[in-house]
Simulated scan of single mutants.
Amino acid sequence: MRGNIEMAEKKYRVIQWATGTVGKTALKYFIENPVIELVGVYVTNPEKIGKDAGELVDLPLTGVVATNDEEQLFAMGADCVLFAGLVQDLDVYCRFLRSGTNVISSAGPFNPTDRYRDQFDRIEEACREGRASYHGCGIHPGFSGDLLPLTLTRLMSRIDRIEVSEIVDKLRNPMVYIEMMGFGRDPDELLANPSRSPEAPYAFQGSMNMIIEGLGKKMERLTTRLEVAAATKDIPYPNGVIRKGTVAGQHYEWTAWVDGAPLVVYHFYWTMGDDVEPRWDNGDSKYRIVIKGDPPLECHLMGSKEADGRHPFLGLQWTGLVGCTAVPQVCDAEPGVLTHLDFGVVQPRGLVRQ
């Protein structure tokens, strides 16, 4: 009984690093969750420096002030830092880890593979030195493309293929990736020189491996394909206009082959609304897992309907939350790199409250 009381009373001192969409979701979670003590917030926007953490997410004042002073945050001796930057920063990770602060990152790296062995070697060394742990996670990689389908395989008798689709209407759900991913470019130019990094499929390869190796197999090769859709009329959005005839839809397809056949396929369908050709007609934004075999299975992960009757895309918010809910497990784990397989079933704390 005493152990249960101590677990319930234990608090984790956390730093939130970056406050974009993912970071704000995490910041709100940390402020409101009774098992978390927010001790620091790192920002890069000069307009946010000096503001109370509560101001940044429309909550009451917390007494924690946002800063861009990295040294101040490194010196705090926090239990954990949740990194929500757009790109990974191994120097920051390793400095925290060497100081004994655990690190959770939504920017990766995620699951160890040979391609990123050097990155994970650096992280592992820092974990050993500081006796701390590292966990890379998000909604995809980090949940919808690995943990969720692997969990669903428990409901199968035979598996022929697993297909995971990320379906996002970026017109209804504006985000910085519209410009970064080359929407508005000439279709032929984008096909010849995609805006998405050629390294991207390999960042997801670890998730594919988690499924495949969990089923007792080995990946033989990874192949990629890209098709685009063009705008059928000018499409205004908050930062500009996607002109008629330019790229208004992208479908990336990455396939992991096992025993000479496709076993795990990732689809990314991104469109700027419905005025595109060809139309892929995937419905509202969601993650869709289809397992072909016996019995066939289909699972949709999406936000609840909003006032207009449509489902919003919550991928960025979920990316923050899947890291937040792992804080106790990461902090209480043995030192080293942690994947979902090291956690068992995560048991979030502090979610049920008045």
Rank of each mutant, 00 (worst) to 15 (best):
I5P: 02
I15H: 11
T25L: 02
T25M: 10
Y29D: 14
F30C: 10
F30W: 06
L38D: 15
L38F: 15
V39F: 11
V43I: 07
P46Y: 06
D52L: 09
E55Y: 02
D58T: 04
L59C: 10
P60F: 01
E70N: 04
F74W: 13
D79K: 05
A84S: 15
Q88V: 02
V92W: 02
C94L: 04
G100T: 06
I104A: 10
R117S: 14
R117Q: 14
E125V: 09
D146V: 04
R154C: 08
L155P: 02
R161F: 03
V164Q: 00
L171I: 05
M175C: 15
V176M: 09
Y177P: 00
D186V: 05
A192I: 02
Y202W: 15
A203L: 13
A203M: 13
I212C: 09
I212M: 11
L215S: 06
K217C: 06
M219F: 01
T224H: 15
E227D: 14
A231M: 01
V247C: 10
A248D: 00
W257Y: 14
D259L: 09
D259R: 11
D259E: 15
V265A: 04
H267R: 14
Y269P: 00
Y269A: 01
D274W: 00
D281T: 04
N282G: 03
D284K: 00
R288D: 08
R288A: 11
I289M: 09
V290A: 12
V290P: 01
P296L: 07
G309C: 10
G323L: 04
E334F: 03
L338G: 07
V345P: 02
L351G: 10
